Computed example of a mutant assay.
Amino acid sequence: MYKRSNHYSSSVVKEGKRGSGTVYMFEKAKQNRMFQDVVDQIQDAILEGRMGQGDKLPPERELKETFQVSRGTLREALRVLEQKGLIEIRLGVGGGAFVREVATGPVTEGLGLLLRRHRVSASDLAEFRKDLEGGIAALAARKAREEDIALLREFLRDMAQALEDPFDWEAVISADNRVHLALGEMAGNAVYRTIQATIHANIHPYFDRYVPRDKETLEGNYKDLCLVVEAVAAGDASLADQAMQAHLARYDGYIESADAADMQSQGRETSIGFTDIKGEDHAADKPGPGHPPGRSPGRPVAKPRQFTSDPGRTPHPEPDGSPSEPSGR
């Protein structure tokens, strides 16, 4: 049964059947922004908890009367709410508009796509992770229990084992990730945990690109995480934050080294290309058979350079694939 609300002068309130009788309420849409106002009212009712998962919105006819909007405006508003993941439209007998669980899926999927398509630069990602995971480590230091510390130390043992002969780069990186994700669980913050998990699920290509594959480098990572875990075990939030930020600052160095190596390699390839062209042109200027001694045939009669691809571009030598180049993140 619907009744007037004392909260809004022209609201409609429906008694809910969930829990302790949660209510939700709507009012006539504002004339200058009717469509958006319908969206906002229903969205606010869901996000503020006045409507919960599984609740059914009133029938279309009653919503039209309540909001005083056309059927087209109402349906467009419901379509937008469905796209936002706030409601689902069910057809057939017993159908209608139902409130969905507010999920993080759309956010994490978007972030995951950005990472997988390399739309986030390595430096931006490293900068973001320092703030995010530093905060996570600080929260973990405040909340971690004895069994949590034991789990972190177990992951550190796995990491140390992977650093022994035979050295296993993949296993070291995997154990490193487990330490980070375990800290995210211990922090107890759903927003931090969700974003962190999404990053770690999609970060491996960055590791491949920038993290060197030598044992000495990853021993430094291991020592960093030992300091983080000890700070968490001591309950020192400030020290845990600092230790984690110092650990992630290593990636700044990895990125700078890899980028510098790329620039140097590109410069060397360009230099080789120009040297090759210059040498060939110089040879073309030398006297050949049929020319008087001391006389150069000159450029007009020099044989033109034959390009195998675009003649407007300097060809580059094939990469040598040397394993001494860091594959990096």
Rank of each mutant, 00 (worst) to 15 (best):
V69R: 01
Q41P: 02
S70W: 01
D37M: 07
M51K: 09
Q53L: 09
D44P: 08
A29N: 01
L78Y: 12
A45C: 11
L74I: 09
L81S: 12
D37L: 03
L47W: 04
Q68K: 10
R71T: 11
L63W: 05
L57A: 07
S70L: 00
R71Q: 11
R79V: 10
E60P: 10
R33Q: 06
E76V: 05
R71G: 08
N32M: 10
D37K: 02
D55Q: 05
K64I: 14
Q31H: 06
G52H: 06
V69T: 05
I46T: 04
E76Q: 11
T66V: 06
R79A: 13
F26K: 04
K56I: 13
R71A: 14
D40A: 12
G54E: 04
A29F: 00
L57N: 07
L78A: 11
Q43L: 11
A45H: 04
D37F: 04
I42M: 02
F67L: 01
K28C: 04
F67G: 01
T73M: 02
K56G: 03
G54I: 06
F35T: 08
D55W: 03
K30M: 09
V69E: 03
L57D: 07
P59V: 14
A45K: 05
R33M: 08
Q36S: 14
E62M: 15
K28F: 02
L81P: 11
D44V: 06
V80H: 09
R61I: 15
K56W: 06
R71W: 03
F35N: 09
P58E: 13
R61P: 13
L63R: 10
A29V: 00
Q31R: 06
A29P: 00
G72N: 11
V39K: 08
V38Q: 01
L47C: 04
V39C: 08
E65H: 12
Q53D: 07
M34W: 06
A77R: 08
A45W: 04
K28Y: 03
K56P: 03
Q43M: 11
E62L: 15
R61T: 15
E48Y: 07
E60N: 13
V38H: 00
V39P: 03
R79L: 11
V69P: 00
R61N: 15
E65D: 11
V80P: 05
A29T: 00
F67T: 01
A45N: 12
K64M: 15
D40Q: 08
D44S: 11
P59Q: 12
E76A: 12
Q36R: 12
E60D: 14
R79S: 14
D40M: 05
E48D: 13
D37W: 03
R61M: 14
F35K: 14
R50L: 10
Q53A: 12
A77D: 07
A77Q: 08
V69F: 00
D40Y: 09
V38S: 00
R61G: 13
E65C: 04
R71M: 07
E60I: 15
M34C: 05
Q36F: 14
N32E: 12
L57C: 02
M34Y: 01
F67N: 00
K64R: 15
Q53I: 08
E27K: 10
V69C: 02
Q43E: 15
I46K: 01
Q68T: 08
K64A: 09
F26D: 05
V39R: 07
V69N: 01
I42D: 02
G52I: 04
Q36V: 14
P59M: 11
S70C: 00
N32P: 06
L47R: 06
